[in-house]
Write a protein that binds this DNA or RNA. Sequence first.
DNA 1: ACTTCGAATGGGAAGCATTCTCATTTGGGT
DNA 2: ACCCAAATGAGAATGCTTCCCATTCGAAGT
Lengths: 133, 133
Amino acid sequence: MAPFEVRLTAHRRAVLGALEAAGRPLSVEEVVAAAGVPTSTAYRNLSELVDCGVVARVAGAGGADRHELAEALSHHHHHHMVCTRCGTVSDFDPSRQLERLIGREIEQILEETGFAVDHHVFDVRGLCRRCRD
Amino acid sequence: MAPFEVRLTAHRRAVLGALEAAGRPLSVEEVVAAAGVPTSTAYRNLSELVDCGVVARVAGAGGADRHELAEALSHHHHHHMVCTRCGTVSDFDPSRQLERLIGREIEQILEETGFAVDHHVFDVRGLCRRCRD
DNA sequence: ACTTCGAATGGGAAGCATTCTCATTTGGGT
DNA sequence: ACCCAAATGAGAATGCTTCCCATTCGAAGT
């Protein structure tokens, strides 16, 4: 795999700061702009932070990946609303009931198919309020 | 956007045939191999078929996209199990109860955030039976 | 069958996001 | 202050996908 410990350098602090300030998944381009780090460093640092479990990688609208603070570090478990027009991704909280049901579903999958679920992705795609107008 | 009508040429028939035979989302490489069409044609045809609503594009484990027959043409609504080791994607059926709850959740999202959901993605990621050994 | 013309094809070039390379710099521990 | 592995960053390299464009195909009309 990859290292599970990394130094907390100024760059990485800046990257984490940008993600925290945004409170939503950012594209690499946005991270580069907000954190003021070179592109190659942004990519490398984001990957390392993902490997450490500090940052989560989420699929955006096009092919480009986005990143946000891992759930353990942010405040709660959540899912994503991906705007298929402007590409912006924002978070939303699922209901307790839904999460409970998803948990049960995952157990069933293991039983019935032998597939060991590591984590689930429940994202919705559509148009954000601004892009609907 | 793109054309909503396309000719049903031999190539496109081959592509659709490959997707139908597989019964699971295929990588472009797999489509090229199974349908025996050149890569550029596979990409173009898959995109056109996606635009027509005949084929659905689904995100795989790495950056590479996969394609399968749209739900309207296959047999039922389903979700995906993505193996993070071998990249294979297979389908599974969600319980009625889960789908009902998801529908309700989507209504709430519109009410509370103004985000108009077009469709939802509920995929699980983990290790398939073969890759667990 | 023959013609016609827009649609489809396909090989390669181009475009992007991402990863790799490697010489140089940085920083934590001794 | 010194050492050495870790981090940096500019550009090269990779890999997936889209674009270009000269050629071919095919459905509708004659």
